[in-house]
Nucleic acid binder design. Structure first.
Lengths: 136, 136
DNA sequence: TCATGGCTTTACGTTAGCGTCAAACAACTG
DNA sequence: CAGTTGTTTGACGCTAACGTAAAGCCATGA
């Protein structure tokens, strides 16, 4: 009931409602992985009977999860990270800001590491090319 | 014998020669971890009898290993990465350049992810602060 | 000489993050 | 109605990256 009464904004982009296989296909992961993420509390799809039903919110979270993984974070870390988004709805805002700052420090360290590494690799590549073709 | 005859350049910064405990202490990791890295071929310290003796080269590799870990790479990945440094001494230079490019692509994806994430967190922090203090 | 500290190897234990059946139910299709 | 497809919940398996003894070899110092 109240599929679009006066609850959520009337915007509708892609489809809402995805099956577990839909998302698995879209993101190139296994259904097993998705269930695993749910078991760890990272997502909480609704149920239609026993069947999981995912909405845009769940899909958005999945995107954040996968990005976190690309960045090398553990599911525990990612879970904490998602909590920062949820916490948006006020509450212990000071504590939130603290946690965000902590996380930001880590990420900026990582950013520095990354830039150093990229620079080094580009240097190596330059050296390699020099030996092959003096000036192309 | 030939502790500094005409083998290596005469430059000498910090001390050369570290024990496994030295490095463990310096980098805040366990000796077990260091032995594990050796068992995986990431470092290859010399031996004095049975005792491992590390030189600057090993120490430098360790630094790269730890940076790789901070970036979320597996030891396998890091191993490949170290090989790029070693390969510096010519050989299949074309293949090297390819691998370097592959790795660079990954890193740049990661860089993008990271920047997005940092921006989002800063946004969250801004919102949080707004609720607390309008203009400080 | 014996205790102490640091080093070694061997080996089993542990956690994370899924992969891979297995068994069962639901809906659709020919 | 049987078969196929998609879903569910277990439950066991597996790799990575170490942790954690256990047991032994040296060297040093009281």
């Amino acid at each position: 009931m109240t599929s679009s009464d006066a609850d959520s904004p009337a915007i509708s982009d892609g489809p809402d409602l995805y099956s577990i296989a839909d998302l698995a296909r879209e993101f190139g992961i296994s259904t097993r992985a998705i269930r695993f993420y749910e078991s760890k509390g990272l997502i909480a799809p609704e149920r239609l009977g026993a069947t999981r039903v995912f909405r845009r919110r769940d899909r958005a979270r999945l995107i954040l999860i996968l990005r976190g993984k690309r960045l090398g974070f553990s599911l525990r870390d990612i879970s904490d990270y998602l909590a920062l988004y949820d916490a948006d709805r006020g509450q212990q805002v000071n504590l939130l800001a603290e946690k965000v700052d902590e996380r930001l420090e880590l990420l900026e360290q990582q950013l520095a590491d990354l830039q150093t590494t990229i620079a080094e690799l580009q240097e190596i590549r330059k050296l390699a090319r020099t030996r092959v073709s003096p000036a192309s």
